[in-house]
């Protein structure tokens, strides 16, 4: 499937910026599931300082917002050729040893709720089935909906709250898989929802690793494995590692953000 993507994030600042940096992970790479054509990231109101591969292999850019700017926009756009592999990325490995994907981060530290889910997975005879069952169970336990959680909500908190977005679903999944001894990681990217061009937001899902198959994707929020409607942009141990944009700003004043995302065939 050929997907054409335009993803714009626009920040407005109440008071002009004195000094601010943003870390951008918006450049997808070729994988067995996707081939990237003509991808570019355009910045207005800011300056690209460096570009490099982070420890997860994500192409990362550091941007400085122009001093005195009160608006900055970042547009990632291009075409991606995707392929349905039944959610299996396979035995593709980078610099991170698998055992590191068993390590909990602050956001994925399990509590009682997650440990209970993990126990079921641990008991499952067939791990692949167990992972699918777990995905369904998480979707049931945590209804999709915004407003209840934020970027810093931990997996356990989201589970207790019973409501969350794709980020929470993915992190609960990762946390439980790790607790059950299965390496797991966070993926941020794009999903083309059927019958619409304007997508409400970027997407996130999880990948788990089984020795037999390698990495396998699980989109808890949509109760499916990523297919040719998905574009993998960045991976990490949790949201913080893979966040499309994260920043730091000196000075006061509020900021607001508007995202517009078109994914079409």
């Amino acid at each position: 499937m050929h997907l054409t993507i335009t993803h714009t994030t626009r920040y407005s600042y109440e008071t002009p910026v004195h000094y601010a940096l943003q870390k951008i992970r918006l450049i997808p790479r070729d994988t067995p599931q996707q081939r990237i054509n003509d991808w570019k990231v355009q910045i207005t109101g800011g300056n690209r300082e460096v570009i490099y591969h982070d420890q997860h292999g994500n192409v990362t850019e550091l941007m400085q917002i122009d001093p005195g700017a009160s608006e900055v926009s970042i547009t990632a756009s291009g075409r991606v050729e995707t392929r349905d592999t039944a959610g299996i990325l396979g035995k593709v490995y980078g610099s991170i040893p698998l055992w590191l994907y068993l390590q909990h981060s602050k956001l994925t530290k399990p509590g009682d709720g997650i440990r209970e889910i993990a126990a079921t997975l641990e008991a499952a005879q067939d791990k692949l089935t167990g992972l699918h069952d777990m995905s369904a169970r998480i979707a049931e336990a945590v209804k999709y909906g915004s407003g209840q959680t934020y970027a810093g909500t931990t997996a356990e908190e989201a589970l207790k709250g019973g409501k969350g977005v794709c980020q929470d679903h993915a992190q609960i999944f990762i946390s439980a898989a790790r607790a059950a001894g299965i390496p797991a990681r966070y993926v941020s990217g794009y999903l083309m929802m059927k019958d619409r061009v304007e997508q409400s937001a970027t997407h996130a899902w999880a990948e788990a690793h089984l020795d037999t198959l390698g990495w396998i994707g699980f989109d808890v929020s949509n109760a499916q494995s990523p297919d040719e409607h998905y574009v993998n942009v960045a991976t990490g141990r949790d949201y913080l590692d893979a966040a499309p944009i994260s920043g730091l700003r000196q000075g006061s004043g509020d900021e607001s953000m508007i995202v517009s995302l078109q994914v079409q065939q």
Partner: peptide, 9 residues
């Protein structure tokens, strides 16, 4: 802020 990005670059 950003020194690690500059470092990895």
């Amino acid at each position: 802020p950003g020194i690690m990005d500059v470092y990895r670059a």
